[in-house]
Structure formats: C-alpha cells, structure tokens
Design a protein around this nucleic acid. Structure first.
Lengths: 297, 297
DNA sequence: CACATGCGATAGATCGTGTCTATGGTCGTA
DNA sequence: TACGACCATAGACACGATCTATCGCATGTG
C-alpha cells in the first residue's frame, strides 16, 4: 500500500532531479529517501527512475506516476487548506530569544502575519534558557532561539561569534584578530550573551584581561557603544550591521545553534502552522543571504 | 501531515457508520482506529464526527473532508491500477495444502484466474508443514493452508473436526456422537490429517480402540470409502459433501486455523496481488456460506 | 595515472509511532 | 440493576521509518 510520505519523496526527486537534494527538501537523510523510492518501485512493480551516474531521469512509468502523484499531493493540500480555512482561529504562543537580531525578528513577524489570517501569534520575549523553561511548563507552544543540542529541537542554522568593532576603528580593516591584538583594547560586556562564560575563559586562559568599559543586557545598546567607539564586543556573527565590522578572533570559535523547539504536547497544533513555517523560512533565508555576503562562520 | 492510512480509517468510518466495524474493515483494532481519527481531527483542527452513543454522524467539516478523502483514495487507486496494468507479468508461487477441500481450491483458482491477467499463478501442492518449509527456503512466495499459530500468518477462518459417516449409516441422523457410539465402529485413517495425533490420543485416553479398516493419504479416497460404507473417519468440517453426514464428536474439539502465510522477502511482491486477494476472498466466502448452512464448528 | 569529488545503494543500529491488549466510562435496553 | 454496545484512554510492544557509516561507481583534475 503506497503511503503518502513516499509520494512526497518521489515528487521531491522529480523536482530536484537528484536524490541527495530531494532528501534535504524532505528533511530526511539520503539513504532514507533511497529506501523509500525503492519501496515505491517495488510496490508498483515498476522502475520509476533511471539512475545514470550524472543525473536522474524519469522512466515512462515514472512520468505516468508523476501525474498521479501530483494530483494526490494537490488533493491532500486542498483538503488541508479547505478545512484549515474554517478551523477556529488557533493561537500560537511563540517564545523568541532576545539574542536574535531585531531586524530578523521584524522580518519574520511581518512575513508570519502575511502568511495567515487564521492563526494568531502571541510573542513572549526572553533568554533562550528562560524560554525552554516556559516551554516545559506549557506556557508557550514553541520557541525560537539558541537550542543547544536539545534533541527535541530542529536546527535552522549554526553560527559563530566574532568581534564587533566600529568601522573607523584602527583594527577595522583586519581579516582576523589575534589575542595579542585585543589585549590592550577596551571591551563591552554583553551580559546575556550565550558565549559569555566561554569568552572570559578564552581571555583568562591566555593571560589577557582587556578593560571592560561597559556591561549591558541590550544588544542595541552594545552596538551603539561600539559604533560610538567606546570599545569592541563579542557577538554572534548575525549581528553584523551598518557601521560595524565583524572580525573573527583566531582560536575562538564557539558556535550557537539557532532553531525551533516545539512543546511535545502542542506538537499537533503547531505542526501545520503556516506562521511557524513562515518564520522558519525567513530565518533560513536571512542566514543564507548573510552567509553568502561574508563568510564569518 | 495527514498520512494516507488515516484517510483510509476515516473513509471506513464513513462507510460503516461505526468505529468498531470500521476497524474490522481496516483490519486493525478499535482503539487504533480511535487514535487515528483523533489524530486526523487534531491535525485538521476540526471535529469530523459527532459521537452520539447510538450512531456516528459526520459534522459539516467531516462532510467536506469526505469529498477530499474520496478523491485522495481514488487517485491512489488510479495510480496503482494505471501502473499495475503495464507492470511486467508477475509470478506468484502459491503453495496450497492438500488438506483443503478440492472444490474450494477449484473455486479459488477459477476466481483468481478471472481476477487478473497480469499475474501468473504457479501452484505447489503439499502438506501444510512441507509448504512452510518451502516458504522458508524461498521456493514459494505464499502458502494457503493450516498455519497453526505462526505469527506471520493471517487467519482466514478457524474450523473444527467432525466425524464423516455415510448418509445411510445407522448413526447418520444423530446430532452428536459420544465416544461409546463409535467404540465398536470401523474407522478410516487419514494419515495426513493435521489432527491425527490428537485423534488417536482422544481414543486411547478413553480406552476405546475402533477397528481401522483403511489408511490413506487421499481425502477423496477417504470420502469414497465412507460413502461406500467401509467406515467412518475424522475430517475437517469443511469436507462436508454429497452423501456424507458430518457429526460432531462430543469432547473432541481440536481446530485448525486456515489462512495465508507470506514469505517475508516476497512480501512486497505479494502485497498488491489481486490473485492472492481473490483467493483469500473465496475462502472466506465459502467458509461463511458453510458456517451459515450448518454450524458444526 | 593517481587522487579527489559527487552521488546512490547497502548494512546495521536506533528510535518513533502505529498497533495491540486491557480497562474505564457512558449511554441505551431488558 | 444488570447487561450489552460502543468509543476513549493508558501502557506495553513491535515494526518500520530513519539514522550513521560505509561501499562502489562513475567523472573530473593535477
């Protein structure tokens, strides 16, 4: 009996023309997809793809099946859409970590709003660790932020940390910085930073103790200080912005894994959420753009 | 994400108007179906059925979903049919136990032949135990016969054993027989009978030792002997036939479970087989008819 | 030619979840 | 009041969808 998931695998291969990319699109591993297609072919008694080593080709049977597959998926989608429309407005309580760039959050929320009128979004701010606690207590349905290696989480991307200096700073042109370069510099402490502990350990281990000119829990404030020339600070690479140069510090490479975490008991409600999907998409896109522009991580 | 199997569950409920019967139709347990429907409703954010205690009713959303569900199933079916038609003729090597009534086998094979022209059937005869061995060695794809409590098997029905006597025998009119009734009778031994061991144990345990007038491995021969008045014999109830009366022997109630067993490695090839399905159907029907006509088991 | 790279298939282990049995709750009916 | 018909819930189990690791096979590239 053909199940829907293999139909999705099949269409992914048709769309991507390649098993590996198709697997990525379905968010499964390549072997899983391979097995799935094999199973489909077995239960139809037909070969659907010709695997020449350079590219995948549809067999005649494959082409024929593609028509049905498209209709099947379309019909599922139609059913979901149709029923979704009349579903009572559902509330998604989303926690968003304050350590995400505000511009990204703005973009994501805007896109989420445009994505659906049948869902209401309720945003709760907080540090990632606080949000996880809220999630466990059932106060929010999902969270977006640093998720560490929590097995329940889905990673959207991973990013490194770098030193933010003002564009007119004497070190602004440098591609990388050594510890010695910053030893005599003035720094600003972002007290809420996920990598704060690791940062101070990094410096003390190397016998370096820069002067701390300010301590803040606001990223905006920290960036303002940097732009004003008060000092430099360590931030996630994604905070790159106007008037600021992000420079990698050699030997210092903690990373944070940004992604979503869904409360197990609200999983079914969140699953089909267009808004959450839109938000995830936005973050992935934004990261892709940034990663293309410079490659700090 | 709605999977196909829940759509099938949904349609079964719509068709049967009742969770319990729907579960039976899907060959799953009632709780499984309950959970499945609940899952479907959750992921659509809609109640699909009104469970009043006496009957199940579709909600408006349910009615709407039913339209899509029907289309989805139709499309899956169309895909399977479409591709099946051009699939290379597939060979189903089916083992059939000799302890099944020949008339049933004839009916089943006839219906199987009419069911499909894209499958070829190769029949191997043998005792159930021999067929299991062939199955394990990969020499046949499936077998039909007594399957005991093999967990791999699907039971079609269960039947008891009874004493076959000629219609003109002095005991022919009796509803049941006691051990004493047959103590002085002449019996015919069906050496290949699944219940042979149990039968002799039954008699010896009661200190009864009927005269054995013949030993045979052919059911036809045994029936002929019985009709000819040579003696009586113990057979599965399904062997009831013209000129023979089947009488239950009180205190003697071994049963045999008739069903199909599919080789695990050819499961995918057999799964969609129209012929195997037709054969199963035939046996179920025949058993139902017989069970309705008389109730020996 | 040797080596690297990209891609799909296979094998074995793991884990999620579909399925089961057992049981409870709620109506109707005798 | 007891019983039967029916669906929901809970906990256990088992299968299979999925994963990681690895192989084999082509095709480039120095």
């Amino acid at each position: 009996m053909i199940e829907r998931y293999v139909v999705r695998y099949f269409l992914a291969v048709v769309d991507q023309g390649n098993f590996t990319r198709a697997a990525a699109q379905c968010r499964i591993s390549q072997p899983t997809l391979s097995v799935g297609i094999a199973k489909l072919e077995a239960s139809l008694g037909q070969t659907l793809f010709l695997r020449t080593n350079r590219r995948i080709e549809l067999t005649p049977s494959g082409t024929r099946f593609a028509v049905h597959a498209r209709r099947i998926e379309a019909e599922f989608a139609a059913a979901e859409r149709d029923l979704q429309d009349t579903a009572p407005t559902k509330l998604v309580r989303l926690g968003i970590a304050t350590t995400l760039p505000p511009s990204w959050i703005a973009a994501a929320l805007g896109r989420a709003r445009r994505a659906s009128t049948t869902e209401r979004l309720e945003v709760v701010e907080g540090r990632s660790s606080e949000l996880v606690a809220l999630l466990d207590r059932g106060r929010i349905d999902a969270m977006l932020g640093a998720i560490g290696d929590d097995p329940r989480g889905r990673v959207l991307f991973e990013e490194g940390f770098a030193v933010a200096v003002a564009n007119d700073h004497r070190l602004a042109g440098r591609a990388t910085l050594a510890v010695a370069d910053v030893a005599e510099e003035t720094m600003i402490v972002r007290r809420h930073c996920e990598a704060l502990a690791e940062t101070s350990r990094f410096f003390t281990a190397r016998g370096v103790r820069p002067f701390m000119a300010a301590r803040t829990v606001s990223d905006d404030r920290a960036l303002t200080y940097v732009r004003a020339g008060l000092g430099m600070t360590v931030m996630p690479s994604s905070f790159a912005s106007e008037g600021i140069a992000m420079i990698r510090l050699t030997g210092f490479d903690p990373t944070r894994r940004l992604g979503v975490l869904v409360a197990s008991d609200s999983a079914s409600r969140i699953e089909g959420s267009v808004m959450v999907a839109a938000i995830e998409e936005t973050f992935r896109d934004l990261h892709a753009v940034r990663a293309g522009a410079d490659d700090l991580d």
